[in-house]
Design a protein around this nucleic acid. Sequence first.
DNA 1: TAGTGTGAATTTCTTCACAGCG
DNA 2: CGCTGTGAAGAAATTCACACTA
Lengths: 220, 220
Amino acid sequence: MTARPIPEATVARLPVYLRVLVDLAGDGVETVSSEELAELAGVNAAKVRKDLSHLGSYGTRGVGYDVARLRLQMSRALGLVHTWPVVIAGFGNIGRALAKHEGFRERGFPVVAAFDVDPDLVGSTVEGVPVHHPDELTAVVAETGAAIGVIATPAAAAQQAADQFVAAGVRALLNFAPTVLTVPPEVSLRAVDLVVELQILGFHLAQTSEGARRGRRSAS
Amino acid sequence: MTARPIPEATVARLPVYLRVLVDLAGDGVETVSSEELAELAGVNAAKVRKDLSHLGSYGTRGVGYDVARLRLQMSRALGLVHTWPVVIAGFGNIGRALAKHEGFRERGFPVVAAFDVDPDLVGSTVEGVPVHHPDELTAVVAETGAAIGVIATPAAAAQQAADQFVAAGVRALLNFAPTVLTVPPEVSLRAVDLVVELQILGFHLAQTSEGARRGRRSAS
DNA sequence: TAGTGTGAATTTCTTCACAGCG
DNA sequence: CGCTGTGAAGAAATTCACACTA
């Protein structure tokens, strides 16, 4: 009776655990404790155990977790038994960098096509990735069986790209454009906004330098 | 008596509100309600009001928020009264894409230098960004007054880059390398891992296609 | 005995709902 | 009257602490 709903916070950490497990397996390690795994994943041991318990009971009391077994279960949970073809909308600096990025293919996310409005790019092939005009998006998604759409267009074009992906049946989107997208609830959407990340860091810089200038907080 | 500790969850949303406010100001809008702002930022109105209340009382009951005033307060909270110079360690696909990215300079985060071990790159200047050898990191950080370090090296070199940045006095890091970094508590660290993002999407794809295959969950 | 798995306590975040002000 | 600002309720995530077992 595996009552499934794995918490989102846990889901977001599973890929990190998986990466650590792959590294450990590569080093020939056969067993890890929650403590060791926590150290390597940058979290605490209680969280590791709680997270892993959502996948089932794959540990052995007094011993730890079998690396190979846990890795397999984790891969399965993350859907990595499949390969998920990725298509990229917008072939500017970021889109191109992603297309060239080897890590994606290696980890089961081959970039199979890209789209751009630039006539100089359309029809060309960059690092094995063919660049199409956005008009062909629906057809190319169908042909390639693309599962994930990456949006790397300018902000002004991002919602339209998202709409096209959704209309073409893509149910997972990764948005790099600096704008909020609206998609139907059955579509998974994640956003990576580089300027937002820098501004969050800026907030902390401002806080601490302000604190330094003005003196420490009052002790309670 | 402004008891400051703004919740992290709120801090992460402030940049999104700011972007919306800048857009609104550009459109000549002078006032927004929490409802409108919520719609544009992709959250709900109660959250907007609670978030903004942490900055102070900058709204007018019955009317809404003054766009210009709120924008100013938000910029101040995010430390955007300063410009924060950025340096990039690792000048591969991602590092280069970041260096070329116009949005950073425009929004107060000029990329002032990059580092790479590749002898063909060292000494060159790409899009106005000089590329140095990592040995010069401390000196260049001091000269440029860099406030934020971006790590775009291979995973194996990332911790060393982080250590060098920290030793040079950089107190904010943005890590793109697929590995967990350890830094002292006074250093702010954020991580962007593209493969992790794809794997999270993969999880949801696996869930929903599994659900579709196996039928709906039991009600109750 | 060492370390998992998990209820319970705690903290953090979100949402509700409404008093109060312009 | 309309909308903010906020206590209070609720939900989610984290952490504690320990019974249990390989």
